[in-house]
């Protein structure tokens, strides 16, 4: 066996730099994907077909094609059309859009799963439509969909590794840099895998806290 794990600590700074950018990139994309997902969900539930149709088309395209390809289109494709984004921005945009579509589906299903009696009861008590949605329907829906949205956030963290393909210096690319200096792919990819696993555990723990909070508001 040609293995030497002592090379890994020598690259600690590089790897930690990668972890930091993976966290920044993922958290930004998570926030945008949730906000955008909520907007998409509301639009798809609206009664205006002209609004609904484009969002439906977007979700069909984004669910039917690979994230890697979407990243390439946003980064290389848009540059051809004259829109030059830096790799980090392109990565955040692609990740946010991709996961927004999935989040929208989850949020929409959550809102639809709330018994219409809840809404009707609120309305008959003299509450306006917006308030009935905001104070009655949405809080219950959010409590129901928190676990599913959490799974999406975990997926996002892992899929963020793909942005290394357009040259964003996050964890995967920093492992690749370390490999090009040391020629030790096994050690560094294993180290990167362990760091992703650790990030994942932290995220899961955070999600558990949020889920507990969400369940209490029920």
């Amino acid at each position: 066996m040609n293995l030497d794990f002592t090379v890994v600590p020598r690259m600690t700074d590089l790897l930690l730099w990668g972890v930091m950018w993976t966290v920044i990139l993922s958290v930004l994309s998570m926030v945008f994907s949730l906000v955008l997902g909520a907007v998409f969900a509301v639009v798809r539930l609206s009664s205006y077909r002209l609004l609904r149709w484009p969002v439906q088309a977007i979700s069909w395209v984004f669910m039917g094609t690979p994230l890697l390809l979407q990243l390439y289109v946003v980064y290389f494709g848009l540059a051809e059309l004259g829109l030059n984004l830096n790799a980090f921005t392109a990565g955040v945009i692609a990740l946010s859009l991709h996961f927004a579509v999935y989040n929208a589906d989850i949020i929409r299903a959550g809102i639809q799963s709330i018994d219409t009696g809840q809404y009707q009861a609120a309305r008959s008590l003299g509450v306006s439509h917006l308030q009935a949605m905001r104070k009655v329907v949405v809080p219950q829906a959010l409590a129901n969909v928190t676990p599913a949205l959490g799974n999406m956030m975990i997926a996002l963290l892992k899929e963020s590794a793909l942005v290394s393909a357009i040259g964003v210096m996050e964890l995967t690319l920093s492992a690749q840099r370390a490999i090009s200096q040391t020629f030790r792919p096994f050690e560094f990819y294993l180290a990167a895998a362990a760091l992703y696993y650790a990030l994942n555990l932290v995220l899961q723990q955070a999600l558990r806290l949020i889920e507990r909070r969400a369940a209490l508001t029920r």
């Binding site: 590794a161 995967t172 792919p185």
Partner: peptide, 13 residues
């Protein structure tokens, strides 16, 4: 718990 891309690189390289 880990990215598929990393698993693939680990296997291949």
């Amino acid at each position: 718990g880990t990215p598929a891309l990393i698993q693939l690189f680990l296997l291949y390289f």
